[in-house]
Simulated scan of single mutants.
Amino acid sequence: MDRRRGGIRWGAVALGWLVAVLAGIVISPALRLLYGAAIGPELDRGELTAGLVAVSMGSGFLAYLVGGYAAARMAGGAGGTHGALTAVYGLVVGVVLGVVLGLLGLVFVEGVALPPATFGLAGEALVAGLVLFVVNLVGGYAGGRLGAR
C-alpha cells in the first residue's frame, strides 16, 4: 500500500503480533519469577491473585510494546496505528481460536483439557479480559509510537 496515504500494512501487524507473542513467552515467566521472589510465602489468596493480575497486565503491556514497535518499524508509517492493531489482531486470533476450540469441545488451560462450560463471558472474567485488552492496546500503541520513523 501507499505509505503516504496511511494504508494499513497487515503483514507488519501480523509480524508485530508474532513478536508480541514471543516477547510475552519471555517476559511473563520473568515477571512471575520476580513477583514470587518479592512477595515471599506469607500472602493470602486475595493478595496473591491481585498480584498475579498485575503481573499479567504488566507482561501484556511490555509484550505489546515490543510487538507494536516491531510493527511500526516494518510498516514505516502510521506507527501508533500499526502498534495498536497488533493488540486487535491478537484479540481476533484469540476469539477465533476460542470459537474453534469451543466447537471442538476442548479448551486447554495450563496443559489440561477443559470443556467450554468451565468458563464464561460474564461478570469478572469479561471485565478482566476487557481491561487486559485495553492495557495491551495501549502498550501496542505506545510501542508503535516509539517505533515510528
Rank of each mutant, 00 (worst) to 15 (best):
residue 2 D to E: 10
residue 3 R to T: 11
residue 6 G to S: 06
residue 6 G to L: 10
residue 8 I to E: 06
residue 9 R to N: 12
residue 11 G to H: 08
residue 13 V to S: 02
residue 17 W to E: 03
residue 23 A to I: 10
residue 26 V to E: 10
residue 28 S to D: 13
residue 30 A to M: 15
residue 32 R to M: 14
residue 33 L to A: 14
residue 35 Y to Q: 07
residue 36 G to A: 15
residue 37 A to Q: 13
residue 37 A to I: 09
residue 37 A to W: 07
residue 38 A to F: 10
residue 39 I to S: 10
residue 42 E to I: 14
residue 43 L to I: 14
residue 43 L to N: 12
residue 47 E to C: 01
residue 49 T to K: 09
residue 54 A to Y: 05
residue 54 A to G: 12
residue 58 G to K: 03
residue 59 S to Y: 04
residue 61 F to K: 10
residue 70 A to M: 06
residue 72 A to M: 05
residue 75 A to D: 08
residue 76 G to L: 06
residue 86 T to D: 13
residue 87 A to L: 09
residue 87 A to P: 07
residue 87 A to W: 07
residue 88 V to G: 01
residue 90 G to N: 03
residue 95 V to H: 09
residue 95 V to A: 13
residue 97 L to M: 14
residue 97 L to T: 12
residue 99 V to N: 02
residue 103 L to C: 05
residue 104 L to E: 11
residue 109 V to W: 08
residue 110 E to Q: 14
residue 115 P to W: 04
residue 115 P to F: 04
residue 119 F to H: 13
residue 121 L to K: 00
residue 123 G to Y: 02
residue 124 E to P: 01
residue 125 A to V: 14
residue 130 L to Y: 02
residue 132 L to M: 12
residue 133 F to I: 05
residue 134 V to T: 09
residue 134 V to G: 08
residue 135 V to A: 08
residue 136 N to A: 12
residue 138 V to M: 01
residue 139 G to H: 03
residue 140 G to S: 06
residue 140 G to H: 04
residue 141 Y to Q: 00
residue 144 G to Y: 00
residue 148 A to C: 01
